[in-house]
């Protein structure tokens, strides 16, 4: 979905000249300014320790900026509690084991909506929808902590989706999932995005970024070094290389083949195949 900022609606979440240092003195962010618009599908990428998770935690109030402002729906996030912000910005943690504690998957997924004060029927409805989106409806009565890592991760993502936030921040959600599970997860996220939810995906997997996100934020040493359309980001691999990121194989191949007339602006294997067929199909 292409975001269409309208005059009456500002960015759903934004950061203005935000600096952040941890208590031990580590400077995690330097003067970060960014806008997140309703309905965007953003990938937040960068090396380990570049500040991705810090941005995520600032957006939902788990961390507070040392300087600058975080705005959620136009309001200064500094004045709101984490619980209040979690209504708008949902954050699925990197390690699913850090949030699972209930005795059944169903209870686990209900925990968030209940905290937000949804009526019982409404909460159950939201939980059921989250379970089916993550395709874990059949695990409803299982103990979450006894599941495989892949399933635990899907439960933890479902438990955030169930809160029905307008912005979903997912911290490396595909870690520990096999290719099929990861594809399924991404399809579910794309579906939510189609409905108008804003997705912010933190990941190291450039293939997922190329295939699913329309905008890329590249972080390096606490700075946003690149903020543009995904297609533009991957068309200049040098900038990515500097941040320790390597484009997926299809894009690399397209760049190697650009001397032969293949457009280097492809993102997916399908696009590359199409492009190759177009260039050589005529000749063969």
């Amino acid at each position: 979905m292409i975001p269409c900022p309208t005059a009456d609606e500002g960015p759903i979440a934004a950061m203005r000249n935000v600096d952040f240092s941890y208590d031990d003195g580590t400077e995690a962010l330097h003067s970060v300014t960014l806008d997140v618009w309703r309905g965007e599908h953003i990938a937040l990428v960068g090396g380990n320790g570049s500040g991705k998770t810090t941005i995520a935690k600032l957006l939902n109030g788990l961390l507070r900026p040392s300087r600058g402002h975080v705005l959620v729906k136009g309001n200064d996030a500094a004045k709101e509690s984490v619980a209040a912000l979690s209504r708008t910005v949902g954050y699925a943690f990197q390690n699913p084991d850090h949030q699972l504690f209930c005795s059944t998957v169903a209870e686990e997924v209900l925990f968030g909506p209940k905290n937000l004060g949804f009526a019982d029927a409404k909460a159950v409805e939201k939980a059921d929808r989250a379970l089916s989106l993550m395709s874990i409806g059949h695990l409803k009565d299982k103990a979450p902590l006894s599941l495989s890592l892949g399933d635990r991760r899907r439960v933890s993502v479902a438990s955030v989706i169930a809160m029905d936030p307008e912005v979903l921040v997912l911290d490396e959600p595909s870690t520990g999932l096999d290719a099929g599970e990861a594809a399924e997860l991404m399809r579910a996220l794309d579906g939510l995005n189609q409905e108008g939810k804003t997705i912010i995906l933190i990941t190291h997997e450039m293939r997922l970024v190329a295939e699913h996100s329309e905008r890329v934020l590249v972080m390096a040493h606490g700075h946003v070094v690149l903020d543009c359309r995904t297609r533009v980001a991957f068309s200049e691999p040098e900038a990515l290389h500097e941040s320790g990121l390597i484009p997926p194989a299809a894009i690399q191949l397209a760049h190697r083949l650009s001397d032969f007339g293949v457009s280097p602006e492809v993102l997916t294997v399908d696009e590359l195949a199409e492009e190759v067929a177009k260039v050589w199909g005529a000749r063969i």
């Binding site: 788990l62 619980a83 979690s86 949030q99 925990f111 809160m163």
Partner: peptide, 16 residues
Amino acid sequence: ATIDSIKDAERARGME
């Protein structure tokens, strides 16, 4: 550090 992270994860799910 784990306990801090767990607290954050639960707070992010609206727990006070």
